[in-house]
Design a protein around this nucleic acid. Structure first.
Lengths: 172, 172
DNA sequence: CGCCGAGTTGAACTGAATCAAGAAACGTGG
DNA sequence: CCACGTTTCTTGATTCAGTTCAACTCGGCG
């Protein structure tokens, strides 16, 4: 029988577990039930966070999942986390059978695309402080759950700059 | 009869024609046959180019087309241009009838998403000069077809900086 | 207790922005 | 085909946000 529960694995994993390693092929997509994960890569020996996923969000190696290329980034858990794991083949099979599932997939991709466009505008035109505040607007609880280093690299600023922004004494 | 040619208008338009105005609703998508267009918006009274479309590429008001919101940017032609115009309803109808067309739509969105991710990395970690060179790598002929002001704003740098980068005397 | 990773603070440096002029290219009408 | 105005691009001087490098603080944990 081909249905959702049969195409899906539920994983309960510890903090820091690595789901995908840079350079590997990964045709699976993870959906976060409880906990959080991040995608990251190394650039000039620095660990750069690329994407966060919290409850009810998806995460996967984009170019491995969508383009059959070796993954450009790794994915690791930020907290003890419960995940759904689905392979691309299972997702495609479900999408072929259930138009609603197919539609859902399209909506998710479209949303992601629109979010990326907004992020580009944010990166290009906001000061470090505005970027930080925008992030807090979108993810108010992120500070309680993610190390500042990861937040800084996600925002494209240094840890030192983030630290200064957060110190009210430095406000102009 | 519901088919591709009936759902499509061919437009032949002059340089500088405005296809979409900021603030309007636009449920159409344009496919460039010959020529070029750009999407842009104003930020602090500055004209910022957001996206280019050349031959065989699509352009539309993203958030109007996908999210039914008033358009955040305008779209105008950079050259005399021949376009295909399709409404969202026609596209959806075609996608319902022809699975291949549906698949095509998904591929286009996915590609766009992946291109946006690459652009984010480029914006975040490359110097002005590297951004310029990356763009030339992707679009070698852009200089012959687009004003430097638009290239600069697309890259998120000032016209002055772009001018200096292009002057070989200023290379370090 | 002492170490270690995570965050803070300080000082010097730098790439790009801004402001201000000027040069070149472009097009439109005479 | 040239003169003139407009738009596009270049160049120079100055300023500034954020980086870099280095030292220091704090909290947790073996």
């Amino acid at each position: 029988m081909l249905d959702f529960t049969n195409s899906t694995k539920i994983l309960t994993l510890k903090r820091n577990t690595v789901l995908v390693k840079e350079g590997m092929y990964s045709k699976v997509l993870y959906f976060v039930i409880q906990g959080s994960a991040r995608a990251f890569y190394f650039r000039n020996d620095k660990d750069i966070t690329d994407w966060f996923a919290f409850e009810n969000e998806f995460i996967c190696s984009n170019n491995s999942f969508f383009e059959n290329m070796p993954s450009l980034h790794s994915i690791a858990l930020l907290e003890d986390t419960i995940l759904l794991e689905m392979t691309r083949d299972a997702i495609n099979a479900l999408a072929d059978k259930y138009p609603d599932f197919d539609r859902l997939g399209r909506i998710v991709i479209t949303r992601t695309m629109l979010a990326l466009r907004k992020r580009i505008i944010s990166i290009q035109f906001e000061t470090a402080q505005q970027k930080y505040e925008s992030l807090l607007g979108i993810r108010p609880k992120i500070l309680q759950r993610v190390a500042l280093t990861h937040i800084a690299s996600y925002l494209g600023i240094t840890l030192e700059t983030l630290s200064r922004i957060r110190n009210p004494k430095n406000r102009i």
